[in-house]
Amino acid sequence: MMSLKEVDLLSISLKQYVYKLKAYSALFYVLLLAQIIALFFSLNGISHMSSGNGELSVSVNTYSASLVIVFSFFWILFAAIQLTTKQYKKIENPLVTNSISGNLSNIGFLMTACVFGGFTSSLVGVLLRIIMYFTFDRSQIISDEFILAFSDLLLGISVTILYMVLISGMGYLTGVLTKVSMAFVIIIPAVIIGISKAYTEIFQSLIKFFTLESSLPLFALKVIITSILIFGVSILLSNRGEVSQ
């Protein structure tokens, strides 16, 4: 009996996931737009250094596709928050659903968005290089890191996906919390700003816990465990919210 229920929950969640992929598909336009805008900015260089003496002047323009990844992070954060809003919940109305299946399908959608965002944002770095190759004076381009090793590209894609999973979890939890009580709209930013100002070391060590991890398997483990915890709390809070309503 238990097993039958599980199968039902999974199949319902899967159906909802497919349905939501179609219903929310327009969200991906925003990602495309954000990445193209970020690419446009990246083409202008992210930093400029110049020095010189009486005889000569030297300037170095630095380029990177990191901004594209940052914009993609913002996109997944907003997308995750949006999925918990009433307007998006209305989309579920035609479906037979409960809180768990709704959450699971949302998480499935977010994971798909993370994979798509991770692939595209890292690959825009390739597009940046090709645009630079054909539009800039090649005799000015420093070869280091222009020729991107394929293994590095795969590494970049994996890490971007993992970061997006983590950020989507945070966004989703934020959305769920604001659904529980609108007070969290003020509490969450206040807590974040408060901790970052009053407990700078704790805040920095929280960030460094992920950003300074130089072992990919350990980083993946940290992100996966943290994301499971965040999404788990989100599902629990979401269930409580539904019961109280």
Binding site: G45, I46, G54, E55, L56, S57, V58, S59, V60, N61, T62, Y63, S64, A65, S66, I69, S122, G125, L128, R129, M132, F136, Q140, I141, I142, D144, E145, F146, L148, D152, L155, G156, V159, T160, Y163, T211, L212, E213, S214, S215, L216, F219
Partner: peptide, 20 residues
């Protein structure tokens, strides 16, 4: 006076984190 202009490409921070 000579002017030299160079263009340096940095890897994304997601790659740099694991490449030291």
């Amino acid at each position: 006076r000579q002017t030299f202009e160079f263009k340096q490409l940095n890897v994304d921070f997601t790659m740099a984190q694991f490449n030291n």
